[in-house]
């Protein structure tokens, strides 16, 4: 899923400083699950912001709502009428939601309330970890399910660097060395021979390095692209 973290309240307050009627809009999918931008976080953010504005002597009218998903026109259109009459909307969706909203409702001002951090999963209660960079050319079949592009700090394709010690990455003792994990896994699976195969330079053009990406499925596309 997409993982996010709420921006510091001071930064949110600064973004919303010129506006009086504000809607804090939660998003009901990924960021609800990662406890960053769902209904509960929208309510908390709204009340904290109200207190801050009052203290600053610049009171604001702040409401909250939550949309099923801010990243699909279908759901935006469903709730569109409820979004009128606000000077600004603080979106607690990920960057995808903020931009989909802006594209669909260009007359409205949509401000980001979250920092979209990564694609990952909950490691344990309250801890999420990144495990996919969306490179557009999945390598997990080579490394048997552990991504060297995402989980190696240097995105190495041919084994661990000289900074791997005691199973940890040189960047931090809190980060596992992805190549140590891959090596152990390949050994267990009887596939250690794969470590000797030289992987050629990666084609990064399938990733963001090729420019913003669009995915087209002609087989499910409607006529005129609608």
């Amino acid at each position: 899923m997409i993982v996010g973290e709420r921006k510091p309240l001071a930064e949110i307050a600064e973004l919303l400083e010129p506006f009086r009627k504000i809607l804090v809009l939660g998003c009901g999918t990924c960021v609800t699950v990662c406890l960053a931008g769902g209904e509960k976080e929208a309510a908390e953010t709204a009340s904290a912001l109200a207190v801050l504005r009052k203290k600053a002597g610049k009171e604001a009218e702040i409401d909250t709502q939550t949309m099923v998903r801010q990243c699909e026109y279908e759901f935006i259109d469903e709730d569109k009428d409820k979004l009128d009459n606000y000077d600004a909307i603080l979106s607690l969706a990920c960057g995808v939601g903020v931009q989909t909203m802006t594209t669909r409702l260009p007359e409205k001002i949509i401000m980001p309330g979250l920092n979209t951090t990564f694609m990952g999963y909950p490691l344990e209660q309250g801890v999420w970890t990144e495990n996919c960079l969306g490179c557009g050319d999945c390598e997990l079949g080579l490394t048997m399910g552990i991504c060297p592009i995402t989980r190696c700090s240097k995105s190495m394709m041919n084994g661990p660097c000289g900074g791997s010690q005691e199973e940890k990455c040189e960047v931090s003792k809190d980060v596992d060395c992805a190549w140590h994990l891959i090596y152990e896994r390949l050994l267990k699976l009887g596939m250690a021979g794969r470590m000797a195969v030289i992987q050629p330079p990666k084609n990064w053009a399938t990733s963001h390095h090729g420019g913003p990406r669009t995915s087209v499925r002609e087989d499910v596309r409607l006529e005129n692209g609608k």
Binding site: K154, M156, P200
Partner: peptide, 24 residues
């Protein structure tokens, strides 16, 4: 060589390139 990660040095906000790895 691969090179020490950028977060060790005096430009910790840098973009680490790592287009090729050392073997490549």
């Amino acid at each position: 060589l691969q090179g020490d990660h950028g977060n060790f040095g005096n430009e910790t906000g840098c973009k680490n390139v790592y287009d090729l790895d050392s073997t490549q």
